[in-house]
Design a protein around this nucleic acid. Structure first.
Lengths: 220, 220
DNA sequence: CTGTGTGAAATACTTCACAGCA
DNA sequence: TGCTGTGAAGTATTTCACACAG
């Protein structure tokens, strides 16, 4: 319809705070729900209220990447959604591998939420002979020894690492040797890897601790 | 041996930044590994290096809660571990319930990492008749309808919420009605609940998005 | 009017740097 | 000497408040 605001300017202007990126994912999630309700536009105030942020915060966050809003209107959901996906790199589909097919790994294989955001688990690996060969959620579990060749073939750069803590570092080293540059680490250890490799840690016990603190604090 | 530094002063001095609390959990985790190696003390520099923080950051973080270190020595692991647990509220064992026993819920039931940090999953609930009555990892799955009575009986104040996104808000409302004050929410939705209820969200797709951003950014 | 984008002000957080203790 | 605790300085992030656009 009207001319789009300034999509030539979807370039990041300065260094972007990490917290901004974290919120971008939250905005995207809320935006997707909002669109599903059939709404076409959303204001910074509305979006902020959904997440408990101020309207200024919402606008500032987007301003790091360009101009996406329409004064008097707000943001067009479809446009903004797309812009955030481009920023996060999820406007395309990523092939990811699961490494470690125990309890948690198997649950990750069955979790549908990844594909909705553009991530496809295209291969699964384990070291236990009793698991190798099994298929779960349509993915056959391969030997970790075949990671190098299969990951090249499938162009895998990101891995969900769900192995026991005791072997996590060792397995991670192998993955990095095979060209992996991003690891979502579910093991409760700090991985020590080259700076070129990105690691995001998800430690469920730590999340529970944070919750315990919050609960105790408010009671006191 | 010597007089402890100042355990009367384990009182928080000002408002504590949320980031500090997040790091406290990381310190605790590293400290536990460090102790397992048989080490008795650790300096702020050593602890910082394990996590990529500066020594000053480590000391400042602890300073919010009192004085725990010994000049010339560092921190005694056992003492510091205990102090952090007291701060986080995990010096005692918490009974928690699992609500939602699908893929992810079952994996959480089988996950040993919680008990190591003082959390016991003492009950599991689901709404599906096909799951109710089953036992997983020694915990029998109960009907969600019995949550109110069982949670009172077991003194449950924290819940792992692993139900489908579509029903998460509704179920959360029920839990809060039963007196739950802390929810670790695995559903990819923002729960809208009274301020007295603490919510920590774990959205696996969002963590992957954050990783994708980091990977794309470094490649560019 | 409603609502964005954005400098300026206000906060919050991190790092520095050093006094003082063992 | 080795290392903590902590004001002061320096950065980073958030909020304010307002010019301007539809």
């Amino acid at each position: 319809m009207e001319s789009p605001p300034d999509n030539s300017n979807s370039k990041q202007i300065g260094p972007v705070p990490k917290a901004v990126i974290a919120r971008l994912s939250l905005y995207l999630r809320e935006l997707q729900h909002w669109e599903r309700e059939g709404k076409e536009t959303i204001s910074s105030t509305q979006l902020g209220k959904l997440l408990g942020f101020t309207d200024a915060q919402v606008r500032k966050d987007f301003a790091y990447f360009g101009q996406f809003g329409y004064p008097g209107i707000g943001y067009r959901c479809a446009e903004l959604t797309q812009a955030i996906k481009v920023i996060l790199g999820t406007d395309r589909s990523w092939p990811v591998a699961l490494v470690g097919c125990g309890n948690l790994g198997q649950a990750l294989l069955g979790y549908g939420g990844f594909s909705e955001q553009g991530f496809r688990i295209v291969a699964a690996f384990d070291s236990s002979p009793s698991r190798i060969g099994q298929s779960i959620a349509g993915v056959k579990i391969e030997s970790i020894d075949s990671f190098l060749s299969l990951s090249k073939q499938l162009d895998i750069r990101m891995v969900l690492l769900a192995v026991p803590a005791a072997v996590a570092q060792e397995v991670a080293d192998t993955l990095v040797g095979a060209g992996v540059t991003g690891i979502l680490n579910f093991a409760p250890v700090t991985l020590s890897l080259p700076r070129t490799v990105q690691v995001v840690g998800v430690d469920l016990a730590i999340e529970l601790e944070q919750l315990a603190y919050a609960v105790v604090k408010t009671r006191t």
